[in-house]
Simulated assay, not measured.
Amino acid sequence: MDLARVRLIDRLIGGVLCAVLDASRRILGRREESTGSSPKKILFIELSEIGAAILAEPALRHVRRSWPEAEIYFWIFAENADVLRVQGLVDPEKVFLIRSRSVWTVMVDALAGLRRVRREGIDAVVDLELFSRITAILSFLTGASQRTGFDRHEMEGLYRGKLQTRAVLYNPYRHISANFIALVEALKRPADEAPHLKAPSAIIETSVPRAPGLDSYRDAMSARLSARLPGFDRRKGFICLHADFESRLPIRNWPMPRYRELADRLLALDGVFVAWVGKIRGDGNGTPAHARSVDLSGETTLEELLGTLDLATAVVSHDSGVVHLATLTRAAVVALYGPETPSLYGPLTEDKTVFYENFACSPCLSAFNHRTSTCRDNACVRAIGVDAVFEAVRKRLY
Rank of each mutant, 00 (worst) to 15 (best):
Q146V: 00
A110Q: 13
V208R: 00
I9C: 11
P58M: 02
M221V: 07
K198F: 07
R133H: 04
H370Q: 14
F77W: 15
V108F: 13
T35F: 07
E357N: 09
L348K: 02
F131W: 06
L128M: 12
K188S: 09
D264Y: 00
Y398L: 11
E205H: 10
V125K: 02
P200Q: 06
L241I: 11
N179F: 00
L60N: 03
G88W: 09
K395E: 14
P339K: 00
I239Y: 03
R7E: 09
P363T: 07
H62S: 15
P92I: 08
R248F: 11
L97A: 00
L3Q: 13
C380A: 08
T353I: 12
N378R: 09
L197S: 14
V274I: 08
L365C: 04
T35Y: 07
R260E: 05
G286C: 09
R396F: 08
R260I: 10
V272Q: 00
F150K: 01
P250Q: 12
F355L: 05
Q146R: 11
R218M: 11
E120W: 10
Y398H: 14
R85E: 15
L84A: 06
G282S: 15
V95D: 01
Y217A: 10
D151V: 09
G307I: 07
I280T: 14
E205G: 06
D215A: 15
C380W: 01
N80W: 04
V315Q: 04
S373T: 15
A23W: 12
A136V: 05
L348C: 03
S66W: 03
K395P: 04
S343C: 08
T372K: 14
H62E: 14
R166W: 01
G36S: 06
D377L: 12
K41E: 04
P92W: 07
R252H: 15
F238I: 04
A70N: 02
V117E: 05
E71L: 11
E350K: 09
A199G: 12
A23T: 13
L214K: 05
A144H: 09
E32K: 00
E69G: 05
